[in-house]
Design a protein around this nucleic acid. Structure first.
Lengths: 129, 129, 129, 129
DNA sequence: GTGGTCTAGACCACG
DNA sequence: GTGGTCTAGACCACT
């Protein structure tokens, strides 16, 4: 799997890393049960510190995307039925300001939903459900 | 207008302030040409630092949501046709990871668009277009 | 408040720190809304690294014992009605092996409950409820 | 006897193993003089490293729960009157932070003792004393 | 001033 | 070999 980290971005590296791995799962490139590289390995590959990778892995673990197995390291978790109310609430909280902005800038509902549907399908096409 | 700042949030106060003001515009509570409180006034009302309010105002100015007038202070700008390609690009960049996450957690496209449409209409209802 | 860290203990420093602060709250020495020292300050006082203090604070935040206020730093949170089912489940998980051990070693239920009641009251005496 | 090891737990496998065996003794499933599986056998059954089982057995031996016999392997020891002052001291040390936490979260003494009594009796019912 | 991020290097516990 | 802990020192964002 290819991880593109932008060192000039104002988004922290460990957040980018987390997002890229989630995107990898969404695209179906990382499948349930698959092992992620060790923190040391990945840190070396990307050219960053192992603590930064570690932080990303821990966030992914806390959010249920991966499991930390004592024998095998980090494993992709099952991605079924995890959209509980708590997740949806946080999603709304995060997405809300973006929608307010889009509305102010004059985007219509149709335009917005079209954009989002496109992004969604860029993921759903790669994965059988 | 009511500004709800969460001092425990991991979102910086000046960003929250910016988002809340945009939401106010989106809800139609702040109309074109209307004056925002002075930096000093707002800082005192909320109980935060001058610089923090200043930063938020400057961001809003940079994004075209307000105009800074030497005599009248900050004025709400017109909200027409500002969704240029650059804005849409940044919107996609920001919304993309959220959608990947929603997809991984098992949300269907319908569910997602329904949620977003609801949020959108919570704004569009208050404003005549 | 006095924090006694045992550097020889096999319990990690940040865990000891977390436990000591919880004990401080339980004894009523740290009251709701009170400010904790900054990570740098406390780290210097105890003679440890600020990252170690930071880790303890973050755990306390995750467990709801403190709030991280953007203006005031770390604040003791309200300690009302936080014993939800999730907490009780984790408590049982952690306490279970200790009880199994006590049972195997021949402690009677009375003996055990007496010990625990004593510890509990060592906390409840200092706080009005 | 059924040993449920959680490879995702933050508790080391050898500690889990120790706890599970003690729980087995407490439930009366493992009786005095009974033989435990050989280190090799158990390691293979659970799918873990030899060293890990070895470590657990050695801890159990140190704590007096089993005897290591050169010919018969590991034998369950008698569980009489082993709750010396040293054990009680360590028990208090370990259980204290949990109680402080429960107190902070608002559990009453009655609630706590009820929970603990329940766990205790889940063991004492299976064993004649 | 604060906490957050990132780096670097060390040691240890675990498997 | 792995991840977990701790240290040390740096820079930056925030208030």
């Amino acid at each position: 799997m290819f991880l593109a980290i932008d060192f000039q971005s104002d988004i922290p590296i460990y957040i980018q890393l987390k997002q890229q791995i989630i995107a990898g799962i969404a695209r179906g490139e990382l499948k349930e049960g698959e092992e992620l590289p060790s923190v040391r390995q990945l840190a070396q590959d990307i050219g960053i510190n192992l603590h930064t990778v570690n932080k990303a892995y821990n966030l992914l673990k806390d959010d249920g995307f991966i499991l930390m197995d004592r024998r095998k390291g980090a494993l992709i978790n099952s991605l079924e039925n995890m959209a509980d109310e708590d997740f949806k609430f946080r999603l709304r909280e995060e997405i809300n300001p973006l929608i307010a902005q889009a509305f102010c800038k004059g985007m219509t509902e149709e335009e917005l939903l079209l954009e989002i549907g496109e992004i969604y399908r860029s993921y759903s096409q790669g994965v059988k459900r």
